[in-house]
């Protein structure tokens, strides 16, 4: 099954809103969190509308608007958003006010904006888009399931579909998860955030970016080589290895990981890159990986800070892992 990625829009800790800057410089962090580089939102949203939006909503609106502008599409046939944590900032604000005011006289704005589907709803409101709108919340399968639903909609002739992955770092989330030892600078595991949107179509159009060939998820402790072999065979890739592996193993301790060893054995000698070193760790970071893969396939060149990839680059395999959630992606140039 082939679906075309017509355009993308991405806000991340890298210069992802400016392709030239992204290819020429890599942003680093000295902290155990990696905040997104946010644009001037006034270029995307009217000031009257923006005043109620929290960071995650603004990121989602700006990334989706960029995606649609790049494609020259005003109204998509469907909008799907994927998020693991939803609008955490507003949720925390609402809960704090519940405590502060003893569950009386609660401000409506934080409540309204705290639901997981706020981003998708705001995009639709701004576009005045009354088409199908759904938000998928399924931890590290959120984006994968949103893509699956997008592809089913495309099969039914509903096209183009705007689909995006979005999550934010908030002070509370970071403090709580850090207490569990999730984020450690010295192990390379840093918290991340971002909003990546894609316009998908069954038709290639005049200037598509890449082809989404397959997405498959596994809920298990560890992947085995047979999982990769079956995936490649199913999608007729057994005779041809991908030219690049984008994986989610952490930057410094990846050689210790069992899943990483499986990956290395399945793709001997294939260049690899740990994409979370660019966007940080968050459950919907596979959106960043898909954006990165689409960009490399479209531009057919590597950023100055990335080495060892041979061009022309035809296929990219993405491996996303978050706890027991594992996903494989196959992205192609044609």
């Amino acid at each position: 099954m082939k679906d075309y990625i017509i355009s993308t829009g991405n806000i991340s800790p890298q210069h992802s809103m400016d392709v030239d800057a992204f290819f020429n410089s890599r942003n680093e962090t000295s902290n155990n969190f990696f905040n997104a580089l946010e644009p001037d939102y006034a270029a995307f949203v009217d000031s009257k509308m923006i005043r109620r939006m929290s960071r995650i909503v603004k990121m989602g609106v700006a990334a989706s608007t960029t995606c649609l502008r790049n494609a020259g599409v005003e109204i998509p046939a469907a909008i799907l958003t994927a998020t693991a944590y939803g609008c955490l900032e507003d949720s925390a604000t609402f809960l704090r006010k519940m405590i502060e005011f003893d569950e009386q006289m609660l401000s409506p704005t934080a409540f309204i904006q705290s639901t997981h589907n706020t981003v998708g709803a705001q995009i639709a409101l701004l576009l005045k888009c009354h088409h199908y709108n759904n938000t998928i919340v399924h931890r590290a399968f959120s984006f994968e399931n949103a893509l699956t639903e997008s592809r089913l909609l495309l099969e039914e002739g509903i096209s183009p579909v705007l689909v995006g992955a979005i999550d934010e770092i908030t002070y509370d989330r970071h403090a709580i998860l850090s207490r569990f030892g999730l984020y450690k600078r010295d192990s390379g595991n840093i918290a991340g955030e971002g909003a990546a949107f894609f316009l998908l179509s069954k038709q290639p159009g005049n200037n598509y970016q890449a082809v989404l060939k397959a997405v498959q998820s596994f809920y298990k402790a560890d992947i085995v080589q047979e999982d990769i072999s079956k995936f490649l065979t199913t999608h007729e890739m057994d005779a041809e290895l991908p030219g690049l592996i984008l994986h989610s193993e952490t930057v410094y301790d990846k050689t210790k990981g069992k899943n990483y060893r499986v990956l290395k054995n399945a793709f001997p000698g294939i260049p690899e890159f740990a994409f979370k070193s660019l966007c940080g760790d968050f459950p919907t970071s596979s959106g960043f990986a898909l954006w990165f893969a689409s960009l490399l396939l479209k531009e057919q060149k590597a950023p100055v800070w990335m080495h060892g990839i041979k061009f022309p680059l035809k296929n990219i395999f993405i491996y996303q892992q978050d706890g027991l959630h594992h996903s494989f992606y196959l992205i192609s140039s044609d």
């Binding site: 109620r52 609660l106 409506p108």
Partner: peptide
């Protein structure tokens, strides 16, 4: 000023608080 219905709710809460 261009306020809307959600703002009206906020103003009611403001009066109370």
């Amino acid at each position: 000023i261009g306020l809307d219905s959600i703002d009206a709710l906020e103003l009611i809460v403001l009066l109370q608080q």
